[in-house]
Design a protein around this nucleic acid. Structure first.
Lengths: 247, 247
DNA sequence: CGAGCTTTTGAACGCAGTCAACAATTGTGG
DNA sequence: CCACAATTGTTGACTGCGTTCAAAAGCTCG
């Protein structure tokens, strides 16, 4: 429960601070928020659709998915989350979960009781605004995914998704030399871009053949960022990563 | 600028109050928010992607769309909004618009300066929470649309969209006897569910033949709500319309 | 080293897109 | 109120992107 430099709280502070700088008082308030750290295996549900959670889940390590199923059992993944994200932050104000959240890879997560989140939000409106903003960025990503799934073809769609991973993982320091770990199966990629796994496989082969990506195990290498961006019609605007006020 | 019983402010108050009851002080604070009412023609942009608006837009009458274009000019509509909604509420905390908003039908809108929104949010944290919640419901709808576009076939998709319209328009009192006005072209429906307008036309004919819907001009009649819901795999949970605390 | 995933490949099929023309409806100006 | 323009809706024929099914090949890990 001590909030040291590598604590969950520090991760949260770094992220919020990168949006708009926090005062020392605000930092301290965040350091005082209790976080219960837990390690989870791959493919485990964190919360399920229909649940009424009393806590939310700060992702510390690994990758999680937000997903839903159709009545026929088809899965659509609506979002991936990377360390520093809070995949179910919405539950703070929406009583019933309208989606499930599960781990993709083995994950470390920190659970934060809603009451503690609410208290820090009440006392520090700027922190509340920062969390609000986080949920707005999530929504922006949903919009971009809608464009992706609804109006782009599979090759572009997959390229776009890989671009997003590169940018978001880079933002949390998980990319080195245009290479990053992507512990995601082709079935999961398919469920994210709304195609079959067979087609993902074929598209990936085409992308490899075109020199857009290389794979080594779960490592993904992007030899030519500009070309991948172009192939994915990728404009990072929707991720809202620039500091407020920057032009 | 007087906030009478049919004023924009009253519309806003009714909606927020239906989520969780407001105190008289909070109501008064909302009544004091200046709103600039404007009438717009059909197919007019309200804000464009890339803009940095200093106000947001309360929809008073008509239907608006949130949309984006691919580089090839294909349009994806991410959301429709009905009276009482604030289609660009996100702009309060995201400086740059990552989508455009346009009217579908002729609309009456009320513009509210961000500064006024921020002031009322700062002084009344519960109002801030209510607005935050509005944006979370928007996000929930994006998620459902992702499932719809990504994993359902065209017939189900369209049925689902029509279900959503019925429920949302009913919630603002715009449905009578399972009949409502839907001034939306087939091209726009197609851009919302990610298909071609030709296919929307054929699917609509099938739905009429199956007795799921009838059309009279822009009026849509739903003779059998249960069957339409079933056809659209529609569960209204994601709209989060029930009052907080209700089970 | 074998069990269980994950990836890859091939073949047949089908949902939906595209293109193009035509019909119906709505809107507008004389 | 009518004539014409513009938009919206409808239909048919052809095409193709991506699915489905099934089987084989590669990996990973106890």
């Amino acid at each position: 429960m001590i909030a040291g430099p590598h604590s969950p709280q520090a991760l949260m502070i770094r992220k919020l601070d990168s949006i708009f700088p926090l005062s020392e008082e605000e930092r301290q308030a965040l350091r005082d928020v209790p976080v219960q750290v837990t390690v989870l295996k791959a493919d485990q549900d964190v919360v399920r659709i229909g649940d009424r959670p009393s806590q939310c889940c700060l992702l510390l390590e690994g990758i999680t998915q937000v997903y839903k199923l159709t009545t026929e059992g088809k899965r659509q993944i609506m979002a991936f989350h990377v360390p520093g994200d809070i995949p179910d932050l919405q539950s703070l104000h929406l009583e019933v979960m309208d989606n499930s959240v599960a781990t993709i890879s083995p994950c470390t997560v920190g659970f934060i009781q809603h009451e503690h989140m609410r208290r820090v939000c009440e006392r520090h409106p700027r922190i509340a605004a920062a969390f609000w903003r986080e949920t707005l960025v999530d929504a922006s990503i949903f919009r971009e995914w809608l464009l992706n799934v609804g109006r782009r073809e599979a090759y572009t769609r997959l390229a776009h998704l890989l671009c997003e991973f590169l940018v978001r993982l880079k933002a949390v320091g998980l990319v080195e030399d245009d290479t990053f770990d992507l512990p995601i199966t082709q079935v999961e990629l398919a469920d994210a871009i709304g195609t079959s796994n067979v087609h993902v496989n074929r598209v990936l082969q085409a992308m490899r053949a075109n020199g857009l990506v290389q794979t080594r195990g779960t490592q993904l290498i992007v030899p030519d960022w500009e070309r991948l961006k172009e192939a994915g019609e990728f404009d990072p605007l929707y991720l809202h990563l620039e500091r407020e006020g920057d032009a």
